[in-house]
Amino acid sequence: MAAYKLNPDHWVDLYADYLFNYAIARVSDAEIAKDLVQETFFAGLKSAKNYKGDAAERTWLIAILKRKVIDHYRKINSNKGKAEVRINYNTSSESEGDWLEEQVADPFSKDGDNTIENEELGLAIEDCISKLPKKQSLVFKMKTIQGMSTEDICNELGINPSNLWVMIHRARTALMGCMNQTWF
């Protein structure tokens, strides 16, 4: 029997946002990403007995999620026969006379690199946020990521604005320390 124990009770609190960001970067749809995260947790439970502790719990869940994302695209592509490829020639008069080659993706474009770097950055921030005390992390996310008003957060959590700013300040200071070496 494996000596390594998983903690599914804490999976949602500890990993849901990290997995969600990972998934949304790949499927670009919040609802699908949410479903994939939920399916990942179910699959994790199902194969919990196979967890040998070689990787951290989160890395193990990410590996499951990766397969879920692949399955998702396979499912979409299984409808391939019904799909049809359309090439839209640009008919606007402004681009009349332009070469067709100019309309295809630029292989030297840095957009792809930026997307990958921003995804890495997002996961690095999420990783650091997950190391914060629970309430600090919650307040930081509500204010910085969800963009909620100070008043709404205070009402929801039953704290006063002074407490809120102290918590956000501590969270940001900790995040700066956590991300310091790679990103600053």
Binding site: I145, M176, F184
Partner: peptide, 19 residues
């Protein structure tokens, strides 16, 4: 300066969170 940098990193990362 670090605080400003953190703000710009958070914006660049386009983070999402579950409610």
């Amino acid at each position: 300066s670090k605080n400003k940098k953190l703000t710009s990193l958070c914006e660049r990362a386009g983070l999402d969170t579950l409610s």
